[in-house]
Amino acid sequence: MSTRIIALVLACLFGAHDQTARANIIVTLTEGVGGVVNMNISAEGTVDASDSVLPPWFFVIGDPSRDSFLPAEFAGITGSPPAGLSLDGCPANNFFYRDDSTSFSPSNLQSLLGFNLAGPVSPVAECETGLMGELDLSDLNGDYVLPGSSFADFVPGSYTGLSESNGLRVLQNLPPVSLIVAESSSVPTPATVGLFAIGIFGASLAARRRGSAMIG
């Protein structure tokens, strides 16, 4: 075997290994204004949508073994799509989080967080049948707000070893997934900020009146 062939074989082997090692998904949740959930996704690597039984509609992560980032039997919510979130040109249709470990659940996940990215309700015709082919996970990267969510629903902590649902329409064989729920930052609500501003304005006005009286 020539030196050139050996070099090519080594490059393929170590190149593939290096790409796999770098593949990961990190989701960070923080408290936003009014107590909603702010979400940052940092992902790299690829995943093949054809590994799913059917063309997937959903990107889902969760804890298959224990209640972790959501309380046990938490009913959860479904909300409007986070603006800007998409994968392979397919924009999110909604998001949802809940404890999905009940006996009738198709996913058997506890502490589940998911996003509908394709399917018949998609506004993009090419996405109506589902996600297709090799997908670049970095498409998910960005900062988002989960409309109508409540940060108080989540349990602070760092969670690793999360996996995808086993649902038929869920994107399978994701790389290692971690989720970080930051401690509550006690972000003031808009109403609180407004009252604070009114207080400052009132104090300033009173001080100006006292100054005018002293000058007079």
Rank of each mutant, 00 (worst) to 15 (best):
R169D: 11
P56M: 11
P123T: 14
L13E: 04
L140E: 08
P188K: 11
L85F: 06
L174D: 03
R22N: 09
D139G: 00
D136Y: 00
G157Q: 10
L54G: 08
I215Q: 11
S185I: 00
A75S: 10
D153K: 04
T189M: 00
A182I: 02
Q172E: 11
G114I: 05
R22I: 03
R169W: 09
S163V: 14
P71C: 09
N40P: 07
I26W: 02
A197W: 15
L13T: 12
G199V: 13
V145E: 14
D143Y: 10
P81D: 00
P64Q: 01
R208C: 10
G114Y: 03
S50A: 15
T28Y: 00
F151M: 01
A43P: 13
A49N: 12
A213Q: 11
T28N: 02
T46Q: 15
E31T: 06
V170I: 10
T78K: 06
I6H: 11
S138D: 08
P64Y: 02
A191R: 02
P91G: 07
A197F: 15
P64A: 02
A182S: 09
V36H: 14
N24Y: 07
L117S: 06
F196T: 12
T78I: 06
S103G: 03
F14S: 13
G216Y: 03
G167M: 06
F201I: 15
N173W: 08
A203P: 15
S212Q: 05
L135V: 00
C90G: 05
D153Q: 06
Q110I: 07
T102C: 09
G34E: 14
G202I: 12
S68W: 01
G45E: 13
D100M: 04
E44T: 15
P56T: 09
V27C: 10
M1I: 13
S163H: 08
F201R: 12
T102F: 09
L162Y: 05
Y159M: 07
S184E: 03
E73I: 00
G119V: 11
G34W: 12
D139Y: 02
R208F: 13
P123N: 13
I180H: 06
L29F: 14
L29I: 08
S101D: 11
P120S: 04
S184G: 14
Y97W: 04
D139L: 03
P123L: 13
I180M: 09
F58N: 07
P64N: 00
E73A: 00
G148V: 10
L117Y: 14
S105V: 03
M214L: 05
Y97G: 04
P82Q: 02
S163D: 15
R66G: 14
G62S: 06
I198C: 12
S138R: 02
A83T: 15
P81V: 00
R210G: 07
I41Q: 04
A16V: 13
N173V: 12
V33D: 14
G84W: 06
L146G: 01
A191K: 01
F69M: 12
T129W: 11
M1P: 15
S86V: 06
L168V: 08
N116V: 08
D88A: 10
